[in-house]
Write a protein that binds this DNA or RNA. Structure first.
Lengths: 118, 118
DNA sequence: CATGATGTGTACTAAGTAGTACATAGTCTA
DNA sequence: TAGACTATGTACTACTTAGTACACATCATG
């Protein structure tokens, strides 16, 4: 992990900070309930990304997609995992089938399911 | 986790053992490269299920689906996770969309993709 | 009847995860 | 120029993961 997570978070936070002083390390840290020094270290990649719960809180704070932040942290949302664990053959097969499909193909499926007559 | 994993493994192994003496705790343990006492404890649910690598090896040994064994152990194959991590929005959306769909709907998708004109 | 295989109990451990607590040093501003 | 706020450095730590090492009792059999 070449610390894309920390860099990303820092950039995102600083950008928000430009127009809102409440996005300091200290204040964001407080809102997601960690020590400022810890968030600082996370942003500089000195330590591994935080737990799923903190990442999700951070996503809320930075108005970002939790799944994307989790991915940057090398994780997969536990509720997605649970969906797979409930029907491992089915979802295993589907995901492996889609592994190398282009984005638009997957997207087409999503839409097909979403507004399809199932 | 009410130890469905251990029970399942034990039953599976014993069944194979009925017709092949090489499926003793000791020998299977040796083949998947763990201590016999550890496998014994796993089967009796005295300790948590082993690592993904050992579970996959066990699946090979017991001629079972790795995804299913991993699911029983409360895990999701790391290569499935990687597929999701590469395109988190896309796969996140798809999986959440399919979360409550009946098996046949998901299966239909799998087949649609498999032999579709993509 | 000893030799070998079997399953299991006990004791321990190295490495990773997910942080805290406090001190320090720089900056802003009233 | 003191007070408040900022980021960061240092030192720890509790918990979990994923096992090993070895001793022990039982059973079968050549």
């Amino acid at each position: 992990m070449t610390d894309t997570f920390g860099k990303y978070i820092r950039e995102r936070r600083e950008r928000l900070r430009a127009s809102d002083a409440s996005f300091s390390v200290r204040q964001v840290a407080q809102r997601i309930d960690v020590e400022p020094s810890f968030l600082s270290k996370v942003e500089r990649g000195e330590v591994a990304p935080p737990s799923e719960a903190k990442i999700v809180a951070l996503a809320g704070e930075l108005d970002d997609d939790p799944d994307v932040l989790l991915a940057l942290a090398g994780k997969v949302s536990s509720d997605l995992q649970e969906v797979i664990r409930r029907r491992p053959e089915l979802f295993g097969a589907l995901i492996r089938e889609l592994k190398d499909m282009p984005d638009r193909a997957v997207l087409r499926l999503v839409r097909e399911v979403r507004d399809g007559d199932w």
